[in-house]
Nucleic acid binder design. Structure first.
Lengths: 139, 139
DNA sequence: ACTATTTCGCAACTTTGTTGCAAAAAAATT
DNA sequence: AATTTTTTTGCAACAAAGTTGCGAAATAGT
């Protein structure tokens, strides 16, 4: 695991620091997306708030993670797939947010349908966020 | 115009106050969605920040406006269509945000496709936000 | 091992959103 | 139309979220 993490950082020309390794590891351990607060409250480790903000921004810039638009407008981040590269995200999959446990999933195998835009509108990116009950919360 | 505004407020059992009339009027004058800051910086009128927050929340509760999920996670509001009622929004249309002028449109005639969820996931609501170039920014 | 560069953590600050409460305005009542 | 009741407003104070500058510390390059 440690080697994978270090490798990802190096591939993206980032200095391998403890904060970056630990935060990236959190993403790899987590099933769903993480918010800034999730990382800050990570009991194992204490990270400075500013360091978290800067690390997340760096990862987004490098295409390691991407932000997920949520209906309650809170910022969440999830790992990108391999196709993403610096400055160029290809996250055309659907996101799912559970109403009960609030976990955010990337549904990699549900792809975004292409929609016909009205005259004059040119679509460049489509974000789809589905909410409902996830597989762990089904009674 | 004033009568329409007053009528909407009365239909929703809201006291007709100056702030509510003016803010609701802003929405009716605007082509796109409005953020809190747009209303606060409305040159014509000065509203207290707190009043704006509370008025927007009231309008959302009554089904007069709805929030739009954006990829940059800023909160925007737009007028609901007639079918919306208190506590029960029916905004299953697609939203469009222009990369250039940042205007947010409700594409009322583009409906949200239904997607097949993976086993165990139960979809309750689907939000679609398309970004690109709007009809006013085409060169 | 030493030097140059990058990153971190602290402090201070800005922006965004919330809560309690007295004053003002709107609605209901007489 | 005047008075009472209810609702809403605006202020202050606070809480949360995010940003910036800068010296100290850690990482990378030689």
């Amino acid at each position: 695991m440690q080697e994978l993490i270090t490798d990802i950082l190096k591939r993206n020309q980032l200095s391998v620091t403890e904060s970056r390794r630990k935060i990236l590891e959190l993403f790899h351990q987590s099933k769903g997306a993480l918010a800034h607060a999730d990382i800050e409250q990570s009991s194992a480790e204490h990270f400075d708030r500013v360091t978290i903000y800067r690390t997340l921004q760096t990862f987004v810039d490098k295409g390691i993670i991407h932000t997920i638009p949520t209906s309650d407008n809170s910022v969440r981040y999830a790992l990108c797939k391999d196709e993403c590269s610096a400055g160029h995200h290809h996250d055309n999959h659907v996101h799912f947010i559970c109403d009960q446990c609030d976990t955010t999933y990337c549904l990699d195998h549900v792809s975004v349908p292409s929609l016909k835009m009205p005259n004059g509108f040119e679509a460049k990116q489509t974000d789809v966020v589905v909410s409902g009950i996830c597989k762990n919360c089904q009674s």
